[in-house]
Nucleic acid binder design. Sequence first.
DNA 1: GTGGTCTAGACCACA
DNA 2: GTGGTCTAGACCACT
Lengths: 129, 129, 129, 129
Amino acid sequence: MFELDLRSRKPVYEQLAEKIIELIVCNVLKPDQQLPSVRVLSGELTINPNTIQKAYRELEHRGYIYSLPGKGSFVRPREAGDNSARINNLKAQLSKVLSEMVYLGVPRDELISTIENLLSRAEGGNIDD
Amino acid sequence: MFELDLRSRKPVYEQLAEKIIELIVCNVLKPDQQLPSVRVLSGELTINPNTIQKAYRELEHRGYIYSLPGKGSFVRPREAGDNSARINNLKAQLSKVLSEMVYLGVPRDELISTIENLLSRAEGGNIDD
Amino acid sequence: MFELDLRSRKPVYEQLAEKIIELIVCNVLKPDQQLPSVRVLSGELTINPNTIQKAYRELEHRGYIYSLPGKGSFVRPREAGDNSARINNLKAQLSKVLSEMVYLGVPRDELISTIENLLSRAEGGNIDD
Amino acid sequence: MFELDLRSRKPVYEQLAEKIIELIVCNVLKPDQQLPSVRVLSGELTINPNTIQKAYRELEHRGYIYSLPGKGSFVRPREAGDNSARINNLKAQLSKVLSEMVYLGVPRDELISTIENLLSRAEGGNIDD
DNA sequence: GTGGTCTAGACCACA
DNA sequence: GTGGTCTAGACCACT
């Protein structure tokens, strides 16, 4: 389910957090849906429970999930908030990625079509089904 | 010249490497142009020479520059060929960033215009003069 | 009546206890007034009776209510005397909160007017009618 | 230096974080001043380094300090930012504390003078000396 | 020597 | 059975 690279320079808990964000963002994990419990995920990924917990804690800090002691962890429904900082960060990333793709010779047409493809998928995913 | 954030969590050498990639990608640093020597850059940025060295080694490893022992480091001209792996990686990143922006509520119009803006800048930079 | 946030990190029983203290302190619940029975409150809040019990036990322990087995729970009239410990505790809390507000840049004027506002409301609530 | 209650219901790392915030807020710890290293503090408090680290991480998340791997942890200078959420939280706390003090019979005069005392100390502390 | 990650394993509070 | 805390101890990356 989650492909983690234990040898990566990026910490495991961070990789895991990003994977889960991906699932939330793509609406694979729906609002208020329960995430796998720390222990279960720990067993499935053969990773220490503390590491899973750290990932969940990180996600909670960043507003993607909420945890109820004794009940479980759940996807936090997105609320209007001050996302401007995060969005600016993403724009900067976008800029870097696009520049490098252009530099590596990806033709503009292909780039545009790729983006439109992604966008329609993303929007599709975010509409309730 | 290089804006490095010594307070950032990201290692200094990594920040430096990324900045240089940016300059290469935007064609500010032209192919085969010589980079400032480790000692000079070390002096300008008041940063340990070892850190600069490490950034340069990283850049060489990733194929952005080449070093001629005793002469200096130079921008490696981009070659057609095995960029497909790198490009696929970038596409994956692109996908993640776009999904998250959509999720955070950036309207499609704004997203498109932002992208076109970035693209025209990137292409402008990459046209040989 | 009671706004409980089931998604909060703070245990439900603790939230409930604090809400009730608030009502007692603001004189909405008068001395010797009977509190709603565990079962009734449990039904209204759709919360496990055990959780209500725990909140009531907590309140009894902290001296805000007293329970007559078989009859119910009642607001304990406040007595003069050994409140000094509690008051000192509150002063310490007050100090912390004020310091942090000053640190965060709340202007003194705003702070004063906020406090006077709160005080007049609190005193109004505590005057016997 | 730090009085921690190991038997408290409040986690040790949280107690520690609050103590440090107090020191920062009262300007005992100045901007960019280095905090005791994780290991040193761990030794002094005879608390596990991981617990100290957790406190520091929490403080970093909340914007009170920044950590430079390999160098140490430092007080983050306060910047204008969106503190409104935190401030509202503090106002709610203030309200509760004041209400309870009034309820416990602290006379308004004493309350006011206490507050002015605290305020002048807090403002004094925040001005550079 | 610094912060940071990860594991193994114990224990607690909440529901 | 859930999340959460804490300890002990190993190892890594950065400066």
